[in-house]
Amino acid sequence: MSRVSQAQAQENRANVVAAAAQLFRERGIQGVSLADLMKSVGLTPGGFYKQFASKDALVTEATERAFNDRDTYLSSLDSKNPSRSDARGAMAEDYLSPQHRDNPGAGCPTAGFAGDLAQAAHEGNVTSQQTYADGVRRFVDWMTDDGDDGLVATCTLVGAILLARATSSTDLSEEILRAVRHALTDSPS
C-alpha cells in the first residue's frame, strides 16, 4: 500500500472540504454520510479520520469554506460595480433568481446551512455555530451601506430564498422571488 504525499493529502483534504460545503448545502448535514462524501471525491471512507477529527470538525471547515467562497463572490461584485449600492443590487438580482433557488449546493451558505446549524448548540457543536455566525456577520456588514440596515436586508434575502425553495414547485415561489427582488432593488423584473 503506497503512502500519499503530503501535497496530495492536502489536496485531498481541500477536495473533501469543498465537496462537503456543496453537499451539506444541497442535502443537509445529516443527509450526507461520510461514505457518500468520500465517494464523491474518489476516496475511501477510512481515509476520513486521517484528515478530520470528526464530522463536526468537517462541518466547521465546510461552513468556513462556503462563507469564504461567498466573500470572494461579494468582492468580485464590488470590483465590477461603481458603488456598493450597485453591487448590492446586482447581488440581490442573483440571489433572488430561479438559478439560486434551484441550486442550493452552489448557493449562499447563510441560507444553505441555516436549518442544520440552528441545531448546532443543542447538539453541542458551538464551534460550527460560531463559524456560521461570523460568516453571517460578514454578509450583514457587506449588505450595510450608507447607514441603512444590512441586517434587515440580509434577513429578507435569506427568508425569501428559503421560502422560495420550500415552495419551488408552485407559482408562489416565483411570486416570492419577484416581490422581494422588487422591494430590495426597485426592479419589477
Rank of each mutant, 00 (worst) to 15 (best):
D134F: 01
S75M: 14
F113D: 04
E123W: 12
N68H: 13
Q119I: 03
E61G: 05
N68V: 14
R101M: 05
K80F: 02
A121Y: 07
V126E: 07
H122E: 10
A66E: 00
S128M: 03
A133M: 14
G135K: 00
A133T: 06
P82Y: 13
L74F: 15
P82W: 09
L117V: 08
A90G: 06
R101K: 13
N81T: 08
K80G: 07
V126T: 03
M91C: 15
V136A: 05
F52R: 03
G112N: 04
Y132L: 07
P104Y: 09
Q51M: 15
D69M: 10
G105H: 08
A133G: 02
D78L: 11
D71F: 09
P82L: 09
G107I: 03
V136W: 06
F67N: 03
T60H: 07
H100P: 00
C108I: 04
K55N: 02
L74A: 03
G107V: 05
D69Q: 12
S128D: 00
S97H: 06
G112C: 15
A120D: 02
D134H: 09
A114N: 05
G105K: 07
N103T: 07
P109D: 00
S83G: 05
A133V: 08
E123G: 10
Q119R: 12
T72I: 07
T131S: 15
P109W: 01
T110M: 11
E123F: 14
T60W: 02
Q129N: 04
P82F: 13
S54G: 13
G105W: 07
T60S: 07
R137K: 15
L77Y: 09
L77T: 04
R70H: 13
D56I: 07
E64V: 14
K80M: 04
P98Q: 13
K50E: 04
L74E: 00
S97E: 04
E93S: 13
A90R: 01
F113A: 01
Y73T: 03
Q51F: 05
R88P: 05
D56F: 05
K50N: 08
Q129D: 08
R88Q: 08
V126K: 01
A90L: 06
T72F: 14
R137W: 13
L74T: 02
A106I: 11
A92Y: 02
L74N: 01
K55W: 04
D134S: 10
L74M: 12
D69G: 08
Y73S: 12
D56L: 12
A114W: 05
R65V: 09
H122V: 14
V59W: 05
H122F: 11
